[in-house]
Design a protein around this nucleic acid. Structure first.
Lengths: 209, 209, 209, 209
DNA sequence: GATGAATGAGTTTTCATTCAT
DNA sequence: CATGAATGAAAACTCATTCAT
């Protein structure tokens, strides 16, 4: 069996086990067994538990980013691109629950080096969203232009909301809404809010005493 | 030194260490040392590592919920209450970064019992926000009434966005915006979007091919 | 409360706990609590766990020895004295199961010093029985005199048999026989065997090929 | 080194240490060191201290029972079989003092599961002796038949006496008698006594006022 | 005398990791 | 490459024991 295939099997097994048990409770024995390989081979290919975890995170992060990027086709209008990105995000996390669990839960809680990888992924997604928002803002030629900082804030909010909704959608089979409904909810509040925002209607603390 | 004081010191130390190292990597030795007490005393007062972690989570969750609840004064209009709640949320998480880290990262990833406490806390906050949104929707007598499911989705999105923005605001001293600016960003997109939403303008996939 | 009384309560509690949990699993906390005294007082009166255990053993050993000695009235014939001693032994062990458990099980298994005390007690009982047997042998003016070594062997056998029967009698409420029946069984085989023995009828390996 | 060998070494070491120090005071470190292996290996092969202890007890119990069973050849007359069984018992306990110490002292005092194994062993030996006694009683066609309960009582007495004599014989090199002499003493008192017993001569309390 | 606070020293147990075959 | 033997290092947890009040 070629190395590449074996390595993929190992990563698959590791993601599964890390998601199920958590980083520390996951034992190399279990991972090796689930991968159908011997422990020394795992070490030969992936060096150490940390490296293995790191490889898992990187692979899952890249896959998620690729899914989202691949969905935001360059030629479409910005809102459609955001819409498609959201859909892709929800679809990918729903299809790879173990990978998403590792990314969203495990990676952030076990040491800086791992957290940095995830932070990097997140930043790339935020940047993507920021660009979409800024682009829309520019093309709308609004009465009140959107400050760059504000665009970044919005992007952070959107990504956070998406993560939260993904968790909600995946939490229980019946309680959460469908993938598309989730995306629509988010799209509605963000897009319409953004549109309105750019027309100068802003909420302020003093507006309603 | 009276027990109560010692116990608080221990919890402070534990929250700090759990946030820094993660649940598993946090050793009782380090916690005891940071608390300025011996390990046996920690065990005498708090029984086990699990119980200690549980106590941390409960304390931090209750403090955060109390802060948010205390800020949403009952007599004010709904938007003002949401605004105050968000401010309180951002302020509290900014003031207790370790506590927030434990709640948002650690607690969800280390066993059901812990996750349940945090899920409970989150649900209570989501419920609070859901009520505020539904209340506003009713009082606005909109053209298109807000479905209950939609209100819950919005609330999930708002809470997720708030969490994300809290992380952003706390991530680096200089990159993030001020507490108030953060809250304003969120308020703007959510509230104005909601207002618009209830007037029948919704974004749909087919609206812009 | 006078020291003597307190000390007795402590020993009572200790014997109980040592019998229930075993030497190591018995905690000073539990003993102190059962004795209705504070732990420091236990230490003040009895110095250490080892000393406490030692005191328990000594007290129970002396009580058992006194019971047996007191029953073997000097003026009666030897067989009657042995009979009464056996009865007393069975009665005392049945009435003080915790004490007997400590003596027969715990004391021998936790370090030489304790074992020595018990060995001393046992030797004294064996000596007593040896004297009774030898006395009987002399008074019977047998055809084949009983060698001193043989008397000691018999005594060891009798004591061992008695211990075994005591355990049997105390093991289950219904399976074991009554105290008196137990003593009679033992008396029968020993005394009648001894009587026979002294008349020259001995079992030998070659007697029945 | 093959696992089987190592495992035997570990059990040997464990029996030795358990006998010397007692169950609780025996540390896994000492056992591992005496076995010439590392602690993790001991755990890998034998799981836990309890399991290790249990394995020791089982092995020693089976060995002793096999020795006694193997010596009581089925075709010989009952008295000869008892004689051989006693000899084998004394020989085995003399050759494996540590094992006998663990069985007779440690196993009974450290938790039900262990005690049950030993109780089972003891019961099997008692049953064996009971059968021998009953068989003899039947074949002798005595004036007064031996009640089943009485046979069991006798067997308990014999086993207890044997245990006691084994302890005596092993206690000091010079004080105790030889293996064969020990067995003869016991045989004499039991067998001759039994023989007499079945001819109606019983000792009774009132026989000699 | 009783009580609560406090701890040093030691225990069992678990992994990630390596090496010879 | 797979396997089995093997381990160093560290973690959770417990307890007898003491001291000030």
């Amino acid at each position: 069996m070629p190395r590449e295939v074996r390595e993929r099997q190992m990563l698959d097994a590791a993601v599964e086990v890390f998601a199920r048990r958590g980083y520390n409770a996951a034992s190399m024995d279990e991972i090796a067994e689930l991968a159908g390989a011997s422990k020394p081979l795992v070490y030969l290919y992936l060096n150490s538990k940390e490296d293995l975890f790191s490889a898992c995170i990187r692979r899952e992060a890249e896959a998620l980013l690729a899914a989202v990027r691949g969905a935001t086709v360059p030629d479409a209008p910005a809102d459609r691109r955001l819409w498609c990105g959201l859909l892709a995000f929800f679809a990918h996390t729903a299809e790879h629950p173990a990978g998403w669990a590792v990314l969203s839960c495990q990676a952030r809680t076990h040491g800086e080096p791992f957290a940095l990888v995830v932070a990097g992924l997140r930043q790339q997604i935020v940047d993507l969203v920021t660009r979409l928002i800024a682009e829309t803002a520019r093309s709308a030629a609004p009465a009140v232009p959107l400050a760059p900082h504000e665009a970044a804030g919005l992007a952070h909010a959107v990504v956070g909301a998406a993560e939260s909704l993904a968790g909600w959608a995946n939490s229980g089979a019946d309680t959460g809404p469908s993938e598309k409904a989730t995306a629509e909810t988010l799209m509605n509040v963000v897009w319409v809010g953004l549109d309105n925002l750019m027309n100068g209607r802003r909420w302020t603390c003093t507006a309603r005493p």
